[in-house]
């Protein structure tokens, strides 16, 4: 995805990871506000995925469209799953799952930035 969206998603994911990490270190179950923050980060993820879909529909051609689509499907699934774990596991371990989810979202943003790049003309692929 574009650099602007990559930075937005990565910062949002790392913010969630940091806040959830502190709450987990305090040995607390995830408070409602943290689940709200997760939802806000998920909104950023969905907006970025939407921007990528619009880019694809309007002619952007990445090096591997299949790989990009795989990441576009996978990325929005991470936080809802992590939030479900945090809701079901009302201990610091459930909160830690949100930390992992935030880190994963940031990593996925970096990978999406890589796979978004168009194929090099010289590569012939």
């Amino acid at each position: 995805m574009t650099t602007t969206w990559t930075i937005a998603v990565a910062v949002a994911g790392l913010l969630l990871a940091g806040v959830a990490g502190v709450v987990a270190l305090l040995r607390r179950a995830a408070p409602l506000a943290l689940l709200g923050l997760s939802a806000a980060v998920e909104a950023v993820v969905l907006a970025a995925v939407g921007a990528c879909v619009v880019g694809l529909l309007t002619g952007h051609r990445p090096a591997s469209t299949a790989t990009l689509i795989g990441y576009l499907i996978g990325a929005p699934l991470v936080l809802p799953f992590a939030a479900a774990v945090a809701v079901e596991e009302r201990t610091r371990w459930g909160t830690a799952a949100l930390t992992a989810g935030g880190v994963a979202v940031a990593v996925l943003a970096a990978r999406l930035h890589q796979v978004w790049q168009p194929a090099l003309p010289a590569a012939g692929l």
Binding site: F81, A82, V85, E88, E89, T91, R92, W93, G94, A96, A97, A100
Partner: peptide, 11 residues
């Protein structure tokens, strides 16, 4: 902690 297993499972 039992909950640690949930975190490992989530990962």
């Amino acid at each position: 902690a039992p909950g640690a297993g949930r975190l490992i499972a989530a990962l």
